[in-house]
Design a protein around this nucleic acid. Structure first.
Lengths: 349, 349
DNA sequence: CTGTTAGCGCCTTCAG
DNA sequence: CTGAAGGCGCTAACAG
């Protein structure tokens, strides 16, 4: 048995006594609710500090029927990716949660999610007030979450008309194209994969829009898509091969993401194609490796932490909905919030 | 305002009524305490399932004065490293936590920790039953945690005589040396940095021990240490330069970690030194990149997830200490648990 | 604007 | 071995 130093727990009652107030007044002060005279409030705050009072989470949760927890659900494989994309999103949420006095509970799910069986404990036990779901996950899980009635938001993924937060892919791509055009490029190729993924198709659309605005209405023979594969290094490499073997000679290539861009550059390097002299390359994401590729990659930076921040803020606003009409604030069509991006120019252009 | 589907909450009382038992009996069944007749237990379990009863965390926490949370404290910079070392440790803890019905609350702290000011909320609010601290963190934080009286354990770090879990560095290094010896190498060099870090010094000791056992008692001129720097790619590169310029001609190099090993191989590649023909290289950690280095690196795999698992299990055992003498189980000297390793042979040897 | 008073849902003695 | 009853610390009406 351990000898544990138990500083006798100080409760709300102790504070009330010390400040000559009632527990309910103290409660109001703590929760910033109702009206308390300035003087009393000051007394109470003083007593709280003096006694070192810290409210018991379980007690207030029990009484108020909240949990003060936000769930963050994520596929395990996404979490351990060496590119800490989702990790940063989580971090953003965790950081923001401090401001709103929530705790973030992380739940990882396997890639082969099975309804019921794999239901995250925090959902089963309803131990959260709201849920953030990051990245592509099983539709079954999403249905379960929706059925639970717990407010939730998707991040970097879309499904049905569920609320979500995404990168402003179209505008970002548009900016990239404008930049390339401004550097004098006109033969610009787009390399993509998994074109049915919303993010990818939006990036393609942004590309097409940018070209269209510059007067290039037909880009079809400049777009290279790998429909079967996902946008990886290898895919970029393969499409690079395909592109050059097709006889096309674009002066610039815009890739659907950094991984593909880096794969493409690898192909170029091995085939003595000089970057940026012969072909300029732009990626998308600004992954850690983009800075260290050779040459360092010009790309569109996505502010990962902001994803998490926004998601958390969105939920807290719903949860503390004081009657303001949130829908007017958020629903522009069924589109939700977008996180900003920034073009980072390095040496590949 | 949302229309929320509220499946009326089913409480322990509902279960008790349904099963013709009292709430306390139900409670006992849930918590596996006391004696309940088999028949009643079966009835109760049946009712629980039938009604879909899930105990309320806050209620039971309030009543039992526990939180059912384990805190996981980690430096933010460690968390977002592109090598998901700590992320995996966290994952291991999270995974194991499910078995013990705990939630894991992650708290990141900045690299410039300031007592009081930066104290993680979960500590301040005492919202955890136990704490896992991963990686090197500020001593101030550690003192605070100790003062709190909350049981804790360090992972991959040591401080004073606080309980910790580490890699079995000595044995692992010993194994690496034995392996190299078995391949006929005798001139084996050790490359290290930050030699005052416990892990590094233990690896060096393992190396020395291995050499000693094989009859090479003096390894001093085979050991290259960078005292000022940490074991990074760059350090490995630099020590490679130093090694070869020193005129030494080892046939094998054992590096304190993979980063250094990869840096060393980069130097070798640039200077046309063939690996493994001229120099065999062994690393330590088995980072993601080890598989993709050229050549793929022979190294010692550390089971990251097990760190988290062990840490969590250690805490739960302390927390549920039923009177068994834990100290006898854990304290071998002040040394604590170690996670196993495995030699992974690839093409660099 | 402040104090009184029920519970929130569960655990835990303590009789029976 | 089982049931009754009190209380964990706080919030939320409701009086005053």
């Amino acid at each position: 048995m351990n000898t544990v130093k138990v500083k006798k727990k100080v409760t709300i009652k102790d504070v009330a006594d010390h400040a000559n107030a009632s527990t309910s007044t103290v409660s109001m002060v703590i929760n910033n609710k109702g009206y308390v005279s300035d003087e009393k409030r000051k007394d109470i705050l003083h007593s709280i500090k003096k006694l070192g009072y810290v409210p018991s989470a379980s007690a207030r949760n029990l009484a108020s029927n909240r949990t003060n927890n936000i769930g963050f659900i994520l596929r395990e494989s996404h979490f351990t990716l060496s590119e800490p994309f989702y990790t940063r999103i989580f971090l953003g949420a965790e950081f923001e949660s401090k401001k709103h006095n929530y705790y973030v509970l992380l739940a990882t799910i396997s890639d082969t999610y099975k309804k019921e069986e794999d239901t995250p404990r925090l959902l089963k036990e309803r131990n959260v007030d709201g849920i953030i779901i990051a990245g592509k996950v099983s539709g079954e899980l999403l249905e379960e979450v929706e059925e639970s009635g717990i407010p939730f938001v998707l991040v970097d993924y879309q499904y049905k008309s569920f609320p979500y937060i995404s990168v402003d892919n179209r505008n970002a791509s548009l900016e990239a194209v404008r930049y390339l055009l401004s550097k004098g490029h006109t033969e610009i190729s787009f390399l993509g994969a998994d074109p049915y993924h919303p993010s990818i198709s939006e990036r393609l659309e942004g590309f097409q829009l940018g070209m269209l605005k510059a007067g290039y209405s037909d880009t079809s023979n400049l777009v290279f898509l790998d429909e079967d594969d996902s946008p990886t290094l290898q895919t970029g490499y393969n499409l690079g091969a395909k592109l050059f073997k097709s006889g096309k000679k674009p002066t610039a290539v815009f890739c659907a993401n950094d991984a593909m861009a880096i794969g493409f550059m690898k192909y170029a390097e091995q085939h003595k194609i000089k970057i940026p002299e012969e072909v300029a390359v732009v990626g998308f994401d600004d992954v850690e490796g983009a800075k260290f590729s050779s040459p360092p990659l010009t790309t569109i930076r996505v502010f990962k932490e902001q994803f998490g921040e926004l998601a958390l803020r969105y939920l807290t606003e719903i949860l503390n909905d004081t009657g303001k009409d949130l829908s007017s604030k958020y629903e522009r069509g069924n589109h939700m919030l977008t996180v900003p991006t920034e073009l980072i120019v390095r040496e590949s252009t």
